Computed example of a mutant assay.
Amino acid sequence: MKTAGVVGAGVIGACVAFCLAQRGVHVQCVDRGRPGELTTEVSFARLSAFQQPTCARFELSHTGMLEHLRFARQFEEAPWWHPTGSLAWGEASESPSFAEVVHRLGVWGYRAIWCDAVQVNREWESGIAFPDPKTPVVLFPDEGWIDGPRLVSALLEAAQKTGFLTLWRGAVEDIEVRADRVVALRLDSGARVEVDAVVNAAGPGAPAVAAMLGAPMLAGIATRSSLVLDLRTDGDPVEHVLRGAKAHVRSAGTGRVRVRSEQVDARLPAGSGFEPGDEITKDLLERAYRTVPALESSTVERSRLGTAVFPADGFPSVGALPAVPGYFEAFANSGITLAPFIGRTLATQIVTGEVHPLWARSSPDRLRATS
């Protein structure tokens, strides 16, 4: 393998490009915008395996969390990596119950420490307003959050320093195939970029890129929208990632906090083109205020709606598509958590042909089934 094209410079594309460049593969990475500015930048970016409903999906997410530590150790500094731990609590109406979810995680080996609201306010986060002093709370000490754009920037800079990465700003209009094998990318600028393989890491644009090859994703694709607010604050009112019953809250750097809510997101229509109105934004802010009252003095710095497109079964699409030699996919939900693991293992597959066993359920072939 001499040259690989990577379509998409979000967190997954950047990790793939970095790992390929480390192996001495010349990488041509193409993105229509600034690297990391789309889905990666809008993500809440919690590093967690909390919401995985099966052991197989949990194992994949947990492995992704551990891979972040391995990635961070490759750099003298890793300012994108924030292993703060997280605090979580639920509502009585949840099904399965919050306690059942935590118990299941414990059976699978996930570290969780039970406490109550009084202990949390006394020892860790004095600014959280719990519904009751006896509210059961769980500390997940191995969780945290990732500054996605900063990670993307660091990886691409490091890859460029190897001399094996070229960045292209533009859209891929076509993928050229000769003798049934990928041979080049054609960009909207008119450039033709010769490659020996191509990785589709285009995030929400991945289905459109696949269709260029006559290999459309015909089944099992889901779409989800999420409203994220970045607030400018006086000081830093939270240290941990908070998965509250009403809202999720985390630091977004000095003097900034990021918030979202599963209940608010459930009200959003799937797909792009929707603009959240003042009512929905106000609902999210009020939920954040009820969780951390100090946020009432904050100001909204940015309001953004992200749209994620991903395999509906919860597993990524990672690996080769045998019908199109030289074509690989790297397409996932929870992209922040999985990106370093996808990058390392997919680079290995591209160079050596070795497929990591955790990708057994993630073949791109399954998204082409018609029945």
Rank of each mutant, 00 (worst) to 15 (best):
I12E: 04
E59K: 12
W80V: 02
P96Q: 07
V27D: 06
H82W: 08
E37S: 15
Q51V: 02
H62E: 06
P96L: 10
E67N: 04
W80P: 05
S48Q: 12
H82C: 13
S61V: 08
D31G: 14
E94H: 09
A17Q: 05
R46C: 14
E37W: 14
S61M: 14
L20R: 02
F58E: 01
L69F: 01
P96T: 04
E67R: 12
L47G: 09
H68N: 11
A88C: 02
A88Q: 08
R32W: 10
A88S: 13
R70Y: 00
V25C: 07
R23M: 03
T54F: 04
G64K: 08
E67H: 03
E67L: 04
G90R: 03
L69M: 01
G13L: 03
F75I: 02
A17R: 04
Q22N: 11
A21K: 10
G85W: 07
P79L: 09
Q22G: 08
E91C: 11
C19K: 07
G90A: 00
H26W: 14
H82T: 09
Q74K: 05
F58R: 08
T63C: 13
Q22C: 08
S97D: 06
A92K: 03
P96W: 08
I12L: 10
H82E: 07
A92D: 06
F50H: 12
L66Q: 12
S95R: 15
V27R: 07
G90P: 11
R23Y: 03
V30P: 13
W89R: 08
G90N: 02
S93H: 11
V11C: 06
V25W: 09
P79V: 07
E91G: 12
E37K: 05
A17D: 10
Q22K: 13
R57V: 09
R34A: 11
S93Q: 05
R57I: 12
R34Q: 14
E76Y: 00
F58W: 14
C19F: 12
V25R: 01
G13T: 10
H62S: 06
E59Q: 14
T54L: 09
F58H: 14
P53L: 05
G10Y: 01
G24K: 13
Q22S: 06
L66A: 13
A9W: 02
L47R: 01
Q74P: 05
L38N: 11
W81P: 04
C15Y: 05
G10S: 11
V27M: 10
V16E: 05
R34I: 13
L47P: 04
R23S: 06
I12P: 12
C55M: 13
R57S: 14
S86E: 04
I12M: 03
E94N: 00
R70P: 05
P53G: 09
T40V: 01
R23W: 07
R32K: 14
L87N: 01
L38T: 11
H68R: 02
H62L: 03
G33S: 13
W89E: 01
S93F: 05
W89M: 06
C19L: 00
A72V: 11
S97L: 04
